[in-house]
Each structure stands twice: as C-alpha cells, then as structure tokens.
C-alpha cells in the first residue's frame, strides 16, 4: 500500500539532494566571479594609481626641468632684451659690416611635404615623441648641438616661438654656432619682430663676420625673406 505522506517527504529530500550540487556549484561560481571581479578591480585601481603617480612625477619632473630653462630664458631676456641685441660679446670681436650675400646662398631646410596628409601627421606624432625625449635630454645635458637640433626642428615645423627659445638657449650655451643665430633671427622675423632680428644679426655679423648672417640680414632688409 502506498504511503503518500512518506513518499512526498522522501521526494522532497531527493529534490534537495538532487539540486544541492548545482546550488553549491552556482554559489561557488558566483563567489569565484565576485572574487575575480574584485581582484581585477583592485588591480585596475592599483594600475591607475601607478599610472597616475608616475605621470604626476613626470609632470613635476618635466616642470622642474623646464623651470630652470624658463628662468634661464627670462634671465636671458632681462640681460638681453628683445629690443637690444647683446652687445658685450659682440663688441669684443666687432668688425665692419660686410656686403650682404645673395639670398640664394641662404641655407634653409625645405618645408615638410604636406601632400600626404596621413603620413605627415603620423611622422609628426612620432617626431613629437622623439623631440620630447630630445628636449628632456637637452635640459639634462645642456648640449649646444642638441639645442640647435631642437631649434631647427621647431623652426622646420613652424613652432617659431619654440625655435626662438631653443635657439636662444643654445646661443647662451655657445655663442659660436652660426646656425643657431640664424634660426634665432629667422624665428624673430616669423614672430613679427623683424627689427629685433635685424639688430641681432647686425651685432652677430659684427662679432662673427658670418656670411650667412649677412645674407639673411640682407634678405630681411629687402623684405624678400619668406
């Protein structure tokens, strides 16, 4: 004879037994998922923190590195104001002003080819990364040749104020680099300070008797400088 109550009780027990592994498995899986998610989250936070702190320090470092340079620029500007070209070093080796050289003799880097917009922007990005490294290195080493390179780079890329700054810095490290003075003067012209460029060139020519500087001065004075 069937004992329905007993059967129902046994059935309930059986169902609990039957589903218990699945429920336990599900709980274990959920726990695992939560643990994984939590660990990932904490990893991400740590990564973010680690990313954030070096960037901060880099920023700080870069600002620290920049500061002296800016101070230097300022100090340079105070000692050598834009309207007055440096006299002391130039007066020492002052020479009579020579005839300006023909414009054709001016050494100028050809402008980058803008026909391929994509490749240009790509190169620019890569160069930007490189130039940042170089600027950092320049701040660390104060190498005049490196400063010249950076000034030239900025001038070629149309960053005339940057070109002006780096040329100025380079000149302060070594005042014997002709090209640096040329870039300095050309940047001034590009920044709309043609008069200051002329005065600078005149002083430099007096001091160094540079043919290139004379040619440039001539070009500026004739208004053919581009």
């Amino acid at each position: 004879m069937l004992n329905i109550q007993n059967l129902e009780r046994r059935w309930l027990k059986y169902k609990i037994k039957f589903y218990a592994p699945y429920i336990l498995g599900l709980i274990a899986l959920l726990t695992l998922l939560i643990a994984v998610t939590y660990s990932k989250k904490s990893d991400t936070d740590e990564a973010k923190e680690s990313i954030a702190s070096p960037s901060k320090s880099t920023h700080e470092a870069s600002s620290t590195v920049l500061e002296p340079s800016m101070d230097f620029v300022r100090s340079f500007q105070t000692t050598l104001p834009m309207n007055e070209t440096p006299k002391a070093p130039l007066q020492k080796n002052a020479q009579p002003v020579r005839e300006p050289l023909p414009v054709a003799k001016l050494v100028s880097t050809p402008p980058p080819d803008l026909s391929d917009e994509k490749s240009f922007s790509l190169n620019r990005t890569e160069s930007k990364l490189d130039i940042e490294t170089l600027e950092r290195r320049f701040k660390e080493t104060s190498n005049a040749n490196l400063g010249l390179f950076i000034a030239r780079y900025h001038y070629d890329h149309g960053n005339y104020s940057e070109a002006y700054n780096f040329a100025l810095k380079t000149n302060s490290i070594s005042n014997k680099i002709e090209e640096s003075w040329i870039i300095f003067a050309k940047s001034l012209v590009k920044l709309g300070r043609a008069e200051q460029a002329k005065k600078t060139l005149q002083f430099y020519i007096t001091d160094s008797n540079s043919e290139a500087a004379r040619s440039l001065l001539d070009t500026i004075e004739r208004g053919t400088f581009k």
């Binding site: 069937l2 059967l7 129902e8 046994r10 059935w11 059986y14 169902k15």
Partner: peptide, 8 residues
C-alpha cells in the same frame, strides 16, 4: 508523481 513512483 513520476519521481515519487520511482522512489516507491
């Protein structure tokens, strides 16, 4: 009920 019969 099928399961109950199976238990039985």
């Amino acid at each position: 009920w099928i399961e109950m019969a199976a238990i039985h």
